[in-house]
Design a protein around this nucleic acid. Structure first.
Lengths: 218, 218
DNA sequence: GCCTGTGAACTCGTTCACAGCC
DNA sequence: GGCTGTGAACGAGTTCACAGGC
């Protein structure tokens, strides 16, 4: 087991798949499956068995030749590799519809992630309660809130033009991981991981598919 | 100009970038820029100039050698390529927080996309008004609603276990493009494009980054 | 001169196929 | 026998570098 990976050495695609594998293993555990081979795992969840083995091999040797993997043991290994063995606290910046909805979206709240602040710059929004029982606070309090509440992840749900300044403010406050929903290309400060989810791009990809399909409704 | 692309021949990554280029060109147009070279475009928005030229070359020759691209002309070309020259109607399945928030999220409502129905299976939700003024309808009405209202895009915001049946029902009703927010691997029916946005995977990727960073808060 | 469009080179990621082990 | 872990082969995607055109 060779832990102590430099973050750059592992492909983002591999990391995303580890998260998928973890989900599959959780389901298998619920079903009472104790042991599984990479081949069977691949077949059940339509993955590729060689890829599973290769992805896991970056982090150690978790399988038993001739047998496969112990479901609960591999699950625990993935929890550790993904850093899910402790709570990660989240601040949401931008108390619009999306920000408010994410507050208590399953997966955000629950299972190791906890939203501990929702911020906005608009005075008419500050002080309003969120569905989860927090109050919207002034974004200017970011520098105090992040260290006080041990926040590690920032979520940007502001309009596009605010995304870069908010990203910089989050980094300045000590945040090193950001999930950005604003439709803007943002320049990640040094050592900060930014993952952008661009709904507009996704819709336009679907539109492309519709426009270039062989056949349309008939 | 060689239009009539088979959808499979163009990489998804290229299509996603076309959407980004379009956004950049819209900004340039607002700024009054009339002509731009691939190199300048790349520098302003941190893109790669060779990649821009290659992506565009799949669809035609839009530039002038020695000069660059006409901003408004190229923008219009991208609008056509992406199929954004006409309205695309959306049905949202799953009237939870996320579904409701997306109803009137900018980019969803506005600019060529229009949410025309929000559906749920839970009787306590059916009949409730959405923020945009629609009423939540019974998901069983999907087969009539899709053709009647000319819906082309389905958005899944249900819990994971409902994702695959809803996907199949959407396909059955004639939908050929689906944006899935449920944390589930879904098997796209033939000819249907499914794009999954998995927030949990994204959070876990960020957690991985936090766990394997060289330094932590100090 | 400058810039596009594009083959060629290269890099990165996936899949194959098998040696080594249970 | 079966399965993992892994080098080697392959393929997709990116970047280079230049020929051709303005």
């Amino acid at each position: 087991m060779k832990r102590g990976i430099e973050p750059g050495s592992i492909s983002e695609l591999t990391v995303a798949r580890l998260s998928i594998y973890l989900r599959c293993l959780e389901e298998l555990e619920r079903l009472g499956v104790e042991t599984i081979s990479s081949h069977e795992l691949a077949e059940r969840f339509n993955l590729n068995s060689a890829q599973i083995r290769k992805d896991l091999a970056y982090f150690g040797e978790f399988g038993i030749r001739g047998v496969g993997y112990q479901v609960s043991e591999l699950r625990q290994q993935l929890v550790e590799i993904l850093g899910l063995d402790r709570e990660r606290r989240i601040v949401i910046v931008g108390a619009g519809n999306l920000g408010m909805a994410l507050c208590h979206h399953s997966g955000f709240a629950g299972e190791g992630f906890l939203v501990v602040a929702v911020l906005d710059s608009n005075p008419s929004k500050i002080g309003k309660p969120t569905p989860a029982g927090l109050l919207v606070e002034n974004v200017e309090r970011l520098p105090e809130i992040v260290p006080q509440r041990n926040v590690e992840i920032g979520v940007i749900t502001t309009p596009a033009e605010a995304a870069q300044p908010v990203c910089d403010a989050l980094a300045e406050a000590g945040i090193r991981a950001i999930l950005n929903f604003a439709p803007a290309r943002i320049q990640p400060p040094d050592g900060v991981k930014v993952r952008t989810v661009d709904l507009k791009v996704h819709l336009e990809e679907l539109s492309f598919h519709l426009a270039h399909q062989p056949q349309r409704r008939g």
